[in-house]
Simulated scan of single mutants.
Amino acid sequence: MVRAADGAERPARTSVWLEGRAPRGRGVRHGGQPSGLDRERITAATVRLLDAEGLARFSMRRLAAELNVTAMSVYWYVDTKDDLLELALDAAFGELGLPDAESKEDWRDQLRTLAAGYRGLLARHPWVTTLTGDFLNIGPCSTAFTSRVGQVIRDAGMPADGRPGATAAVLQFVYGAGTVESGERDFGFGLELLIAGIEAKVPRD
């Protein structure tokens, strides 16, 4: 059994990103509901509701009311509430602007940009902190962000065997800072310590 985002214990499930579910039709009429409903619109409405009312108050019925459809219409596009929360989680990560992979900007500045962006995301969407701990965070947007952090660390000269640990250290530091009230100065100081630690582990010619 696993504990889902709403606190209830449910049978173990795999991620929506691993179950091979193709996005369902756009604008399909189902059960007499109006056309124009699709996963993207449902996901965007979910993000808005989570921002406005929080994770504890979110429900499929409340979402359906926001969209002016029946709850069964929403289930035509997503199988479960948890699937929808995973989609919303990845949509939030899609807001992050990633430095160009071919950028000539110094890796330290790129890492600062990525860390600040992630911290800002957690501040705008407090529910992301909870869902990141509840679900496999492997949607395309989240994966792209994590990969970009890893690429920046690779560009710093970190050997291959040290990149996963360095990437995890950066992500976990920002995630931890997002769960507590930390001042800008404290966040910046901690990030600079991480950058200095990465530099110290890069082999010198």
Rank of each mutant, 00 (worst) to 15 (best):
residue 14 T to L: 15
residue 35 S to N: 10
residue 75 Y to P: 06
residue 19 E to G: 11
residue 2 V to P: 15
residue 65 A to G: 14
residue 90 D to P: 15
residue 27 G to I: 00
residue 89 L to P: 15
residue 96 L to H: 03
residue 55 L to N: 03
residue 75 Y to E: 05
residue 88 A to Q: 05
residue 65 A to F: 10
residue 64 A to E: 03
residue 57 R to H: 14
residue 71 A to R: 09
residue 96 L to R: 03
residue 66 E to W: 02
residue 29 R to W: 09
residue 95 E to A: 09
residue 61 R to A: 14
residue 66 E to M: 02
residue 53 E to T: 08
residue 32 G to L: 08
residue 94 G to A: 02
residue 34 P to R: 12
residue 84 L to H: 12
residue 11 P to Q: 01
residue 92 A to P: 13
residue 86 E to L: 08
residue 6 D to T: 01
residue 19 E to T: 13
residue 79 D to K: 04
residue 101 A to Q: 04
residue 74 V to H: 12
residue 66 E to N: 03
residue 27 G to K: 05
residue 6 D to Q: 01
residue 63 L to M: 08
residue 3 R to C: 04
residue 31 G to C: 06
residue 47 V to Y: 02
residue 78 V to E: 06
residue 70 T to E: 15
residue 55 L to F: 10
residue 60 M to C: 12
residue 59 S to F: 06
residue 23 P to W: 03
residue 64 A to M: 03
residue 94 G to I: 06
residue 8 A to Q: 10
residue 44 A to M: 02
residue 13 R to L: 09
residue 5 A to G: 09
residue 86 E to I: 05
residue 22 A to T: 04
residue 91 A to T: 13
residue 75 Y to N: 01
residue 91 A to Q: 10
residue 71 A to Y: 01
residue 100 D to W: 01
residue 81 K to M: 12
residue 95 E to W: 08
residue 56 A to M: 07
residue 91 A to K: 06
residue 5 A to E: 07
residue 100 D to F: 00
residue 67 L to V: 00
residue 48 R to I: 01
residue 78 V to H: 09
residue 37 L to I: 02
residue 4 A to Y: 08
residue 17 W to Q: 05
residue 39 R to D: 15
residue 18 L to E: 13
residue 92 A to S: 11
residue 92 A to L: 08
residue 64 A to F: 03
residue 74 V to A: 12
residue 79 D to G: 14
residue 51 D to N: 06
residue 3 R to K: 06
residue 88 A to L: 01
residue 85 L to G: 13
residue 11 P to N: 02
residue 9 E to S: 05
residue 17 W to C: 04
residue 37 L to S: 07
residue 89 L to W: 14
residue 101 A to T: 04
residue 4 A to V: 10
residue 48 R to C: 01
residue 72 M to N: 09
residue 55 L to Y: 06
residue 90 D to M: 06
residue 72 M to T: 05
residue 101 A to W: 09
residue 81 K to E: 15
residue 41 R to T: 14
residue 62 R to T: 07
residue 76 W to D: 07
residue 28 V to S: 07
residue 91 A to S: 13
residue 52 A to T: 01
residue 93 F to Q: 12
residue 32 G to H: 09
residue 33 Q to Y: 14
residue 81 K to I: 12
residue 58 F to M: 11
residue 76 W to C: 04
residue 88 A to I: 00
residue 60 M to W: 07
residue 15 S to F: 10
residue 54 G to C: 04
residue 25 G to M: 04
residue 36 G to N: 07
residue 29 R to I: 06
residue 40 E to Q: 11
residue 57 R to V: 00
residue 69 V to I: 06
residue 65 A to R: 14
residue 60 M to N: 12
residue 9 E to V: 00
residue 18 L to K: 11
residue 47 V to G: 05
residue 61 R to M: 09
residue 18 L to T: 06
residue 27 G to C: 12
residue 59 S to R: 11
residue 60 M to R: 10
residue 74 V to Q: 11
residue 96 L to K: 05
residue 26 R to E: 14
residue 68 N to F: 08
